[in-house]
């Protein structure tokens, strides 16, 4: 990558800028049989223009719900989301539709997120029609341009989703998201359904597009090595709660929270020389979000659990510079 293309990275490192997206105390409960399923609990996060924030955690930790709630696919139980300084929870009707042009999503399963009865032209064109962006000849031109952008051929335009491989379908999903020229894209596990050799193709495409168009990503995933590679900062979640937030290098070099340490240590490394390294294997399963543990939610599996962990929810604080965590070990 040449130095010319790095202009947007420069924006990321500039101090004192306004965040593109501000999440404050976001909470989302679902009602299940008169009980509350606490999917997301008090999540706060600033996302700056041009950066990629990774959101990692195990299944059921609320990362997808958090992503969907941030872009108003779910209505939050509590908390605010500001986009460009405006509270988007107050939006409705026209304003909400306008917001959808700014914020888009790429879904996990490329087999389920494309309508099997629509051609590629209609799938991508639908976004243009809804927002009245292009009509007639222009519409087709724009669709061809988008196909070219994501590395598909012009001849693909009249085909149906079943005629494509998983990687190609994910490219269609990306083209659809880009059709409305969004600023911010939530990528909800965009590569986890793809084969290894195809994953790298899609990740490279996402990075190329980010540099070309100055996109901002929230990248949700459970594959830590891929998240480290693509993200500038990483937020680790467990059972709906924020565990740790740091730049991706810092998080991997100095993981503070015992959960992050266990998660990093559990990732299998494709290098047989490291086979016998010391590993932290946490015992047990993730507790039910219907009835999460008191105090720190990780205490039931934490190797360092203390008395205070059951009594008090640990405070979210900056332990090192720009490195936040919620753990009683650091008080």
């Amino acid at each position: 990558m040449g130095s010319k293309e790095n202009t947007y990275e420069a924006v990321v490192t500039k101090e004192g800028r306004e965040p593109l997206l501000q999440v404050k105390g976001l909470t989302k409960y679902f009602k299940v049989n008169k009980q509350h399923l606490k999917a997301v609990e008090n999540v706060s996060l600033d996302i700056y223009e041009g950066e990629t924030v990774g959101l990692v955690g195990e299944s059921g930790c609320g990362k997808s719900t958090a992503g969907r709630t941030i872009i108003r696919l779910h209505k939050p139980t509590a908390g605010d989301v500001y986009f460009n300084g405006e509270d988007i929870n107050q939006y409705s009707g026209k304003k909400l539709k306008q917001l959808r042009r700014e914020i888009q999503m790429i879904f996990q399963d490329p087999y389920a997120s494309l309508n099997p009865r629509m051609t590629v032209e209609d799938i991508i064109g639908e976004a243009l029609d809804i927002h009245g962006l292009a009509r007639g000849k222009k519409r087709k031109e724009r669709i061809l341009e988008l196909l070219d952008l994501v590395g598909l051929d012009a001849e693909h335009i009249s085909r149906f989703p079943h005629e494509f491989s998983g990687g190609q379908r994910q490219r269609i999903g990306i083209a659809r998201a880009l059709a409305v020229e969004p600023k911010f894209i939530v990528c909800d596990e965009p590569i986890s359904a793809l084969d290894v050799s195809i994953q790298a193709q899609v990740v490279n495409l996402l990075q190329k597009l980010q540099k070309q168009m100055g996109l901002t990503y929230l990248f949700i995933a459970h594959d830590l090595s891929m998240v480290k590679y693509i993200s500038d900062r990483i937020l680790v979640m467990y059972l709906g709660n924020m565990m740790e937030l740091a730049s991706s290098d810092e998080l991997h070099e100095n993981p503070l929270h015992p959960y992050t340490q266990a998660l990093l240590s559990a990732v299998p490394v494709p290098d047989p020389k490291l086979k016998d390294r010391e590993r932290i294997v946490v015992s047990g399963d993730v507790p039910s979000p219907l009835n999460p543990p008191s105090g720190c939610v990780f205490r039931t599996r934490c190797p360092h659990a203390m008395d205070i962990c059951a009594k008090q929810v640990p405070e979210w604080k900056e332990v090192r510079e720009n490195h936040f965590t919620a753990c009683h070990l650091y008080e």
Partner: peptide, 11 residues
């Protein structure tokens, strides 16, 4: 190709 297409933690 497979070895190169997966990011390593030290990538």
């Amino acid at each position: 190709g497979l070895m190169k297409s997966v990011p390593r933690l030290d990538q």
